[in-house]
Computed example of a mutant assay.
Amino acid sequence: MSDPSQVSDLDKNRALVDWLEWQLRQAKNRVRELEVAEEQERRRRERARAEMSWKIQPQRGGMQAMLHRGGCATYSEQFGFINREEALIALAEPDIEACPICTPETGLKQS
């Protein structure tokens, strides 16, 4: 009869595999958490960049071209941002209106 206080090599290795699988699950969970945090940070940076930019809605269907703040949801295109100087030039154009919702001229003419 074998000694019950002795653990077989097989049992030791099974315990090791269980522990390593637990450790792998922990590491995978941490990677998922970090990926979510990284994506949230990327979105935050994009929003901040948009808020410091402007965009022009082209003239279409009889509607006049319109200047928006970069984060304005009224015109949701998220590419083609323009800087402050370009927004000032656009606002001075007679065929471009300022969006009445996001009021892109607010703070634009100050400096």
Score class of each variant (00 low, 15 high):
S8N: 01
D9G: 13
L10Y: 06
D11G: 00
K12C: 04
K12I: 08
K12Q: 10
N13G: 00
R14S: 03
A15N: 07
A15L: 10
L16N: 11
L16P: 02
L16G: 08
V17E: 11
V17T: 09
V17R: 05
D18Q: 15
D18C: 03
W19H: 13
W19V: 01
L20Y: 10
L20G: 04
L20I: 06
L20F: 08
L20Q: 14
E21S: 13
Q23I: 05
Q23H: 09
R25K: 15
R25H: 11
R25V: 09
A27I: 08
N29C: 04
V31S: 08
V31C: 08
V31T: 09
V31E: 15
E33A: 12
E35G: 08
V36M: 10
V36W: 02
A37Y: 03
E38F: 04
E38I: 01
Q40W: 03
Q40K: 12
E41N: 13
E41F: 04
R42C: 06
R42E: 14
R44L: 09
E46H: 01
R47K: 14
R49Y: 10
R49W: 11
R49C: 06
R49P: 01
E51C: 10
E51M: 13
M52Q: 15
W54I: 03
W54R: 01
W54A: 05
K55W: 03
I56W: 09
Q57E: 15
Q59H: 14
R60V: 04
R60I: 06
G61F: 10
M63R: 15
M63D: 14
M63P: 00
Q64T: 06
Q64M: 13
A65L: 09
A65P: 07
A65N: 05
L67T: 05
H68E: 04
H68P: 09
R69L: 06
G70M: 04
G70P: 12
G71Y: 02
G71W: 03
G71E: 15
G71K: 08
C72I: 00
C72R: 02
C72S: 00
S76P: 11
S76D: 13
E77Q: 12
E77V: 14
E77H: 10
E77K: 13
F79T: 13
F79A: 14
F79S: 13
F79Y: 07
G80E: 08
G80F: 00
G80A: 07
F81L: 07
I82F: 05
N83P: 06
N83R: 01
N83E: 12
R84D: 11
R84W: 05
R84S: 03
R84V: 08
E85L: 08
E86M: 11
E86L: 06
L88T: 04
I89L: 12
I89H: 12
A92K: 12
A92N: 09
P94I: 01
P94E: 12
D95W: 14
D95Q: 12
I96L: 03
I96F: 05
E97Q: 12
A98S: 06
A98D: 11
C99S: 00
C99T: 04
I101N: 15
I101S: 11
I101G: 07
P104M: 02
T106G: 02
T106C: 05
T106N: 13
